[in-house]
Design a protein around this nucleic acid. Structure first.
Length: 571
RNA sequence: CGGGGUGUAGCGCAGUCUGGUAGCGCAUCGGUUUUGGGAACCGAGGGCCGGAGGUUCGAAUCCUCUCACCCCGACCA
């Protein structure tokens, strides 16, 4: 591609609306432009990268035996009503009516559409297992779109849906996808991690997320330093920490603590570390209010709590509600004498002599013991794991926390959709049987942003070659110098003929501008061609990755560039 | 949905408090000189000052309503 004939509007300054590196760089490098909140135009440079990701995904999906289809973006409400999701899905589902007043939505996902298709077309167990995928624009009316295409409302997604006759076959299909995903992210040149995940409202048994590790990630990932356990913080199981025994066999005492409300204040008041204290939180579900107990230095995991309580509409109570229900302020709540059902985190099971609120404003209890001072409550894993916690899987390792960007998610859905939509096939016995389903998503457009988060420096993007919009950039210092221009054109053509994608900066710009833009755009290899080099009989080949450069004699340049690019591509 | 902020040239902003029909830098176009890390000079074009209504002799500026976008929080297959 010749830069003189390409829309590549680079920006010198950081756009004010961009918060994270990838968003800034995508705007500055002229890859995208915003049209509305969470909605973006893809310019030529950005589209080239997007297509690279798409093709990698397509190749691996095909290799794994999935069949590509293309479903409509616009879907009739009837399908969603069949599975009940028309009501359940909430505000993120963009709904609208057609001319005749019929309800439609812009698809945020396609379980209903694909299941409708296959229930009409698949009749026999002989047609299973089957896996269909598409690469398509989705729309989710995010409450708060942000970070450019990282969390946009319209985005490009690869979604795949598998159908199997039984659990064993589903496990196998899931495994195939899991491996395909590893190949995909590896091919994209990303540093990633597969982690166990909560299945959320979509339901199902097993679920893994694939995360690109990056500081700007919106998710926290816990992983063990000894075994291969890794999980989203939402899901990560807490091991049981060592009991914190009471320093003395003291009796329970009520102490006036007029100024101490928060855990920090209470710990300071009693001059103990926060892990000697217990915090009491009030939550509610449809079933009513509950009191949850956590060690003072621990944090509530609302997903675990919500799953354990098994009610809908889980939420923390507001301070005013707490006061209304218990007659006590938030800062003095405690389990002794509490009239609500109490559930305590596992880490408290063996503790004794702890400090907690006295259920009376301005007072705390010290030296509290289970059974002696209050009945033993139910125990459950309610907290977020912390750095340094022992691993619940292997018991010997400890956990670390990293930030991750979720770029893929695989689920075993079971019969949730096939059953509600009445999909059956005939089995070996000639009986109707409801197949089991799996679904597998990849955020194609998000991968572009994630790749930049992981591959950039102060000057711009440093593409892994598999995603690079161009393999080699040729910087022609002065297009008016005929010898240099001829050489540049000649190299350009040779690169193209060898199947590579070169970018020729043949603009009538000063070399400084070209260098700056080349840094931004981030082609892995570049070559600088000017009159001086031609006179010396050698031009400079540079690496965007490590900034190294070397002089190469003129008649070897094209060959060297081709070999170098192909080497990088084959790794 | 709650809180905060911003809308003035393609981009970044000043002007708004204190009303007199708009300015700076970058970018763009023409010219001259330059040409190995974001050039210099000369000249030029480009604005329903987010929108609607109101106050006023007169509104980017004051008032009312509205729309859009950004940030924090809540929420989140």
């Amino acid at each position: 591609m010749r830069l003189s004939k390409t829309l590549l509007p680079t920006l010198k300054e950081d756009p004010v609306e961009a918060q994270i590196v990838s968003h800034k760089l995508m705007l500055r490098a002229g890859m995208i432009r915003q049209l509305g909140a969470g909605i973006y135009n893809w310019l030529p440079l950005g589209l080239r990268v997007l297509r690279k990701v798409e093709n990698i995904v397509r190749q691996e999906m095909d290799k794994a035996g999935a069949q590509e289809v293309l479903m409509p973006a616009v879907q009739p409400a009837e399908l969603w009503q069949e599975t009940g999701r028309w009501e359940q899905y909430g505000v993120e589902l963009l709904r609208f009516k057609d001319r005749g007043g019929r309800d439609f939505c812009f698809g945020p996902t396609h379980e209903e559409v694909i299941t409708d298709l296959v229930r009409n077309e698949l009749r026999s167990y002989k047609q299973l297992p089957a896996n269909f995928y598409q690469i398509q624009s989705k729309f989710r009316d995010e409450v708060r779109p942000r970070f450019g295409i990282m969390r946009g409302r319209e985005f490009l997604m690869k979604d795949a849906y598998s159908y199997d006759l039984d659990q064993e076959s589903l496990d196998n299909s899931y495994d195939l996808m899991f491996k395909a995903y590893q190949n995909i992210f590896k091919s994209c040149g990303l540093s990633f991690r597969a982690v166990e995940a909560d299945t959320g409202a979509i339901g199902g048994s097993d679920s893994h997320e694939f995360h690109v590790l990056a500081e700007s990630g919106e998710d926290a990932i816990a992983s063990c330093n000894s075994c291969d356990y890794a999980a989203n913080l939402e899901k990560a199981e807490a091991g049981t920490p060592k009991a914190i025994p009471s320093p003395t066999k003291e009796q329970m005492q009520k102490i006036a603590t007029p100024e101490a409300k928060t855990i920090d204040e209470v710990s300071e008041f009693f001059t103990v570390t926060p892990d000697k204290t217990v915090k009491s939180l009030l939550v509610k579900t449809d079933e009513g209010p509950f009191m949850l107990l956590l060690r003072g230095d621990h944090e509530l995991n609302e997903i675990k709590a919500s799953n354990f309580l098994d009610g809908n509409n889980f939420s923390l109570l507001e301070p005013e509600e707490v006061k209304n229900i218990t007659g006590v302020s938030v800062g003095s709540l405690g389990p002794v004498g509490a009239k609500l059902p109490v559930i305590a985190d596992l880490s408290l099971a063996n503790n004794s002599g702890f400090i907690c609120g006295a259920n009376e404003d301005g007072y705390h209890l010290t030296g509290v013991n289970w059974e002696r001072d209050l009945p033993k409550p139910k125990f459950a894993d309610l907290r977020n794991v912390q750095v340094g916690d022992s691993c619940s899987r292997c018991g010997s390792g400890t956990l670390r926390l990293d930030r991750g960007i979720e770029v893929g998610h695989v689920f075993k859905l079971g019969d949730k959709y096939t059953k509600s939509m009445g999909m059956t096939v005939l089995n070996q016995l000639g009986r109707e049987q409801t197949p089991l389903m799996g679904c597998y998503g990849i955020g194609v457009s998000r991968i572009v942003a994630a790749a930049i988060e992981q591959n950039h420096d102060d000057n711009g993007i440093v593409w892994p070659i598999s995603l690079a919009p161009f393999h080699v950039e040729i910087l022609l210092i002065n297009p008016k110098e005929e010898a240099a221009a001829n050489l540049a054109n000649d190299i350009y053509k040779q690169l193209q003929d060898s199947g590579l994608e070169p970018l020729l900066d043949d603009r009538n710009e000063r070399i400084g501008v070209k260098f700056k833009d080349a840094d931004l755009i981030g082609a892995p290899i570049r070559v600088v061609i000017g009159g001086r080099g031609i006179k010396e009989g050698a031009v400079e080949v540079q690496s965007r990755v490590d900034g190294s450069s070397e002089k190469v004699v003129l008649d070897k340049v094209a060959e060297l560039l081709i070999n170098r690019a192909k080497n990088l591509l084959s790794v």
